[in-house]
Design a protein around this nucleic acid. Structure first.
Lengths: 344, 344
DNA sequence: TCGTCGGGCTGAAACGTGTCAAGGTTATCC
DNA sequence: GGATAACCTTGACACGTTTCAGCCCGACGA
């Protein structure tokens, strides 16, 4: 049933010109005479010709696609980032191959193989771990690489990130100022740099306030998801009340929502009994049972900027200067941490 | 800097065999002698050879990618569907090109062009409107098409959907039984079939209960988003209290969350003053300010099944029977609609 | 009239792979 | 020992583009 595929050659003969001319109409319309051009265009639409990108790519060396590898599609943070990427690439007529590593480095690796076989122009990636050795190899083979939501340690690769340490500081300073002296940090897996940085920022704020590091107790989670958050909350509630944290800072909003669910289920009031601060300020944070305080990141701009950086390098590789863009996060205080704690 | 691209030919000479043999090692390893095979594999890893999928695709006619076109990436419903798709395709070594039509049919059309140029094996799509004329053309050119979350009217195209009318019925029956006699339906744009079906189902349940159709009042929204939900809620609250609905049924959870936010902001209690039922049962529904009653759909299975249907057809086009899979939704009652209304 | 110039167009050569008929080698059987 | 079969391997062609050297032809200047 699939009618015979129509190629540039069919168009050529229908229009009474050579294949070269058809190709020119497609790629450099200005150098072909108007009358010829119209004849070709007519033939194209008459035959319903659709250029074969594989052939073009084969000839040109690289294609019109780019890969986006994120840690979790189900996390609204990343879907917003993806939207930003799409904005920038759609305008440039590029296709995005969306890959979900799920925080699993084997899966990440498989996807990178796939992208390499596709000869993508470049890869925008939030790597699972720091071992970017694989990414360096990619670059050497001519695949552009931009780190997403992760600061590059190497000067020869672009990155777009948000200052996670600062974010951690903002959250923790807020809690300390409200009088909290036993605070839990919920986040993980620890191998994620974002988690570590946010925690380190929090510790820094603690020191700054002249408090002991033990003020902050860490609860590591196997994944940054709602379910893991619920689990962490029940661990926190397992402690005797006198030793229990009076505030919880979560490495992202999914965790925070999970914590909130479990606290509520166990009749612990937020923020009266335990205050709560999340991270990312996803749209659902504001709609939560108790509207969630959170550290806001410019999610969409993150994606846009990363894509733009890659497109810039693709269009003018010669005098492209690798950049490390760092955005600043912003604390949004809502119900979940609003009331100051009376010390005790 | 990008080292010279290494092709199958380089591998062949390095291993001392012909290119045909290398190709065989890659595609039908069983027909080549073990010793030769090992020699070739050694050469491959030594040279760091990565097959060029564009060339393969050019030769074979169709590639290893498939397109997924959804209405809104930011909607957790679709990200869960996408996860299902990914499960099924990842196992088959396929790449997914993720496209976001944003409910805009021009954007949808642009993406279909792109996918056609990529010579994708097939397209999984939740179309913006019913004018699937474009999709029929796609099929005629040999691109597999599976409708996603939309029932196919044509017998010659697969579809995977959930019975939206039934979903609407379930929700409405629940509200009617709780005693509500002035109910609002919030959903839109009306052009989306899902929205219409859910509404029709609701109307059906009304008739079934012997109630007048005017019992249900429709509020159309420009998009099925949180913001649109807030807006609809303030329209509902604009009515005098005596004429105002005592329950709201929303075409999806994003709308419901928006409605909930605005009701809360205007000090209207849920469910005491107004009961609320959403649709999709996204994870955030249970975590909302007031846990949301919702109609649950098997999101991930939806995606999995659609992808599987397409793979089946791709692998054995001859005796593939087009299917119309229809799942059944399920009502999940939570806080937001729990208390029966005392009539009046 | 001849030479030169340049805009438009042509035609063939790649790009990297899959496929397939044909060839070559070795084992098997009478 | 020769025929047959079984098994591997080869080499050339095709896939649909882009690119580029070169051709044709009309215009222009001398």
């Amino acid at each position: 049933m699939p009618g015979p595929a129509v190629s540039i050659r069919d168009v050529a003969s229908q229009a009474g010109v050579s294949v070269g001319t058809v190709s020119n109409v497609l790629n450099r319309p200005d150098i072909v005479a108007a009358s010829t051009r119209n004849r070709v265009l007519a033939a194209i639409s008459e035959l319903g010709f659709v250029p074969n990108d594989a052939a073009r790519q084969l000839r040109r060396g690289r294609g019109r696609t780019l890969g986006l590898v994120v840690l979790d599609v189900a996390n609204p943070f990343f879907t917003d980032v993806a939207k930003g990427v799409e904005d920038a690439t759609g305008a440039a007529g590029m296709a995005v191959i969306f890959c979900n590593s799920d925080g699993d480095s084997a899966k990440e690796s498989r996807y990178l193989d796939l992208l390499e076989e596709q000869r993508v122009q470049g890869v925008l990636i939030t790597p699972v771990d720091d071992a970017n050795e694989r990414l360096v190899r990619l670059r050497e083979r001519g695949v552009l690489v931009v780190l997403l939501d992760r600061r590059s340690t190497r000067p020869d690769v672009c990155s777009v990130s948000v200052d996670d340490r600062l974010g951690g500081e903002l959250a923790m300073r807020h809690l300390v100022e409200a009088g909290h002296r036993r605070i839990a940090f919920v986040g993980g897996p620890w191998r994620l740099e974002q988690v570590r940085d946010r925690c380190h920022g929090a510790v820094h704020a603690l020191r700054e306030a002249g408090l002991a590091e033990e003020t902050l107790r860490r609860f590591e989670t196997p994944s940054p998801t709602v379910a893991a958050g619920r689990d962490a909350a029940s661990r926190i509630l397992g402690l005797p009340r006198s030793a229990r944290a009076t505030a919880v800072f979560c490495a992202n909003d999914l965790l925070a929502l999970g914590v909130l669910q479990e606290l509520t289920r166990q009749q612990v009031r937020v923020p009266e009994d335990i205050a709560l601060v999340g991270y990312d300020d996803i749209d659902f944070a504001a709609a939560a049972a108790v509207p969630l305080s959170s550290v806001r990141q410019p999610r969409q701009r993150l994606g846009q900027t990363a894509a733009q950086l890659m497109l810039d390098e693709a269009n003018d590789p010669e005098n492209h200067r690798h950049k490390q863009v760092i955005f600043e996060p912003e604390l949004v205080v809502r119900e979940s941490s609003r009331y100051a704690r009376t010390p005790g």
